[in-house]
């Protein structure tokens, strides 16, 4: 399938708008618990999900919003689900981490790595019942250390399952720098298991689209799984209210809570040697600084990247954006007004 940049942009922009509104609603307290945004992943979602056909399945992680939207799930029902209302997508039972749409064969999990086995199973069912259709597995770099994901990659190769494994690499596993707990290169793991693996810039929708297109054709033809490693950034960190980002953004207010006990502990009479202690303290302060740098778009925003490309066509872009902003606002207003 050929890429349609305008179609991609429309979907990416709508998703971004929707999640910006979700952030506001979450801050107002109308959404409970955690909130993991897929903001920053829009090009990866658009480059893969917009190529799906009827019968294709998606195994989604805890950031499934953009994939659900681009697969055609009603944003009103999504927001109502986040608000825990009975007219939400899952009648308020699941929440944002557990989004399910049977009609779209789309299932989410808040357990890291669980999308691997799920995609393998969907692919098995698809091969038997809906020949030519595939399953996508979305997960982060942190999940690449989870046994069940690696096991299902091997299973997919052994059984030649029509799966496309999509690793969205933000460099961070919750508040742990992935590189500090991960050995080797992620693509090499997939290659080692015998499937084609490609590393791409996940903010470049065209690159994602082209790579995914090859993987999807391969899967549909029954030639087995492939692996896409796509880099991205989460400007809000792991979730809204990310503790590292909070400290980085409001150092005086947030550091006050942490610094006192931390310094008290560091100078406590009993404990490790001074060298080890100062090393540990440095680790923490480095992490805070690194978060602030890493989780920042700094020219790597998938949306503005595509926007620069489309700007040439006079007026069309602004007109489209205004339409989408109004459309989103209408949905949000309706969701907030509903009882």
């Amino acid at each position: 399938m050929e890429i349609n940049h305008w179609h991609c942009y429309e979907n990416m922009f709508s998703s971004r708008q929707f999640e910006a509104s979700v952030t506001t609603v979450w801050r107002s307290g109308k959404i409970s618990g955690e909130m993991h945004l897929s903001t920053g992943e829009e090009a990866i979602t658009a480059g893969t999900v917009l190529q799906l056909q009827a019968g294709d399945a998606m195994a989604l992680d805890h950031r499934g919003t953009s994939a659900m939207l681009m697969r055609g799930v009603d944003p009103f029902r999504l927001l109502r689900e986040f608000m825990g209302k009975s007219d939400g997508l899952c009648h308020g039972q699941g929440g944002h981490m557990h989004l399910f749409s049977k009609r779209h064969l789309a299932a989410s999990s808040g357990i890291v790595g669980a999308t691997g086995p799920a995609a393998a199973g969907f692919a098995l069912a698809n091969r038997a019942l809906r020949p030519g259709s595939v399953a996508l597995a979305f997960f982060g770099d942190g999940a690449m250390n989870q046994g069940m994901l690696l096991e299902s990659m091997n299973l997919a190769v052994a059984w030649r399952l029509p799966v496309v494994f999509i690793c969205k690499d933000s460099k961070w596993a919750i508040t742990t720098l992935s590189a500090s707990v991960t050995g080797g290169k992620l693509v090499n793991r997939a290659i080692g298991m015998g499937m084609p693996a490609t590393s791409i810039d996940g903010t470049d929708v065209e690159a994602v689209w082209k790579t995914a297109s090859k993987s999807l054709i391969r899967a549909r033809k029954g030639k087995g799984p492939s692996f896409i490693h796509a880099t991205c950034t989460h400007p809000e960190g792991h979730f809204l209210g990310d503790p590292l980002l909070r400290i980085a953004r409001h150092p005086v207010k947030e550091m006050k809570k942490v610094a006192g006990p931390m310094i008290k502990s560091a100078i406590h009479l009993q404990g490790a040697s001074i060298l080890k202690r100062s090393g540990s303290l440095a680790t923490v302060t480095t992490l805070i600084g690194k978060t602030a740098r890493d989780q920042h778009f700094s020219g790597k925003d998938p949306l503005s990247r595509l926007r620069r490309q489309l700007k040439k066509e006079n007026g069309r872009l602004e007109k489209l954006e205004n339409e989408l902003i109004n459309k989103n606002q209408a949905v949000i207003n309706r969701a907030l007004a509903a009882r």
Binding site: V112, G113, G142, A143, N145, Q146, G147, A173, I174, T176, S178, S180, V181, T182, V258, P261, M262, I263, K264, S265, A266, H268, G271, A272, S273, K276, R277, G279, S280, L281, T283, V284
Partner: peptide, 18 residues
Amino acid sequence: VNLLSRFGRDRVLAAPIS
């Protein structure tokens, strides 16, 4: 973080999601 700053990295080990 408090135990880490007092006892060091050898005794407070950050693990991958595994």
